[in-house]
């Protein structure tokens, strides 16, 4: 379980990226974090594993208070938090297998990881994860030889290889086509259900967020302005999060996401 209490982040430049964020995520819940660009979604996610240092507040993962940890303890805590990135963030020149196994680095002394001497269990788990994401034959391919969707699958396998207690997902579908986006979201969701894993997914696409989350949190200018089930995301709520816009077109009569995106494009032109 993850618990945030009054988490704030002010950058050195004086930008208030996050203000008093409070929420709890129970085991197995998938939270979709939506909001306009620059609302602090990315900052919020990175404050949890402290890739960004929060300015104040408390973050608890299980019994561990994450904010006060020293470097060594922080590394131990990060092992428990899997992260999936926008544009995959795989190490391009390493093989798929090395990328997946890098999820175990926190458990391995440096000399063993240098010689790529991972334990048998780690390797077996990596193979079964690759099999699960449909890339069993790609283990020895270099990451830069894969397509976008395949790379993000490797990214998912790397995060799950950590056997995490929490999944942080930052814009997983930002550079993928609509069909691949859905496959990736489905994969993340089923992994969470299978492992009873809580997840926070940063996402731009409101329809995807509604379709694949148990709960939606809306951020606007660093503050949480909505926290509720996906069907409670009414036009009024969307206006609170994103500002004025004709939202009826977004959902569209046909309901499918691809057309929804097209519709919002037309929408923009009309209002201009």
């Amino acid at each position: 379980m993850l618990k945030l209490d009054k988490v704030s982040k002010t950058y050195k430049t004086g930008d208030k990226a996050l203000h008093h964020a409070c929420f709890e995520v129970p085991a197995g819940q998938v939270v979709g974090l939506i909001g306009p660009s620059g609302a602090g979604k990315s900052t919020l996610i990175r404050c949890i594993n402290r890739l960004v240092e929060p300015s104040s507040g408390s973050i608890q993962l299980g019994d561990t208070e994450l904010t006060g940890l020293n470097r060594r303890e922080l590394r131990r805590a990060r092992r428990r938090i899997g992260m999936i990135f926008q544009e995959y963030a795989l190490v391009e020149r390493l093989t798929v297998m090395e990328n997946v196994l890098s999820g175990r680095l926190g458990y391995l002394p440096a000399w063993r990881s240098y010689f790529r001497k991972f334990t048998g269990d780690d390797i077996a788990q990596a193979f079964s994860l690759l099999d699960k994401v449909g890339l069993a034959d790609y283990a020895d391919k270099r990451a830069d030889a894969l397509s976008g969707g395949q790379r993000q699958r490797v990214g998912i396998a790397r995060a799950l290889e950590q056997n995490p207690e929490l999944l942080l997902v930052d814009e997983p579908t930002a550079s993928l086509d609509p069909k691949t986006s859905r496959q990736i979201m489905r994969l993340i969701r089923s992994a969470c259900q299978e492992r009873n894993l809580p997840a926070i997914i940063n996402i731009h696409d409101v329809l995807l967020a509604q379709q694949f989350s148990d709960r939606i949190i809306g951020l606007r200018a660093g503050e949480i302005v909505f926290d509720g089930p996906p069907d409670a995301l009414t036009d009024d709520v969307l206006t609170t999060i994103y500002g004025d816009e004709d939202w009826t077109q977004l959902r569209g009569e046909n309901g499918s996401g691809d057309q929804g995106e097209d519709a919002s494009g037309v929408d923009l032109m009309e209002s201009a």
Binding site: L51, R75, A77, R79, M83, S102, L105
Partner: peptide, 11 residues
């Protein structure tokens, strides 16, 4: 980003 990703695993 690749550095960040590896750091996030607890390396």
């Amino acid at each position: 980003k690749q550095v960040e990703a590896i750091r996030a695993t607890g390396a």
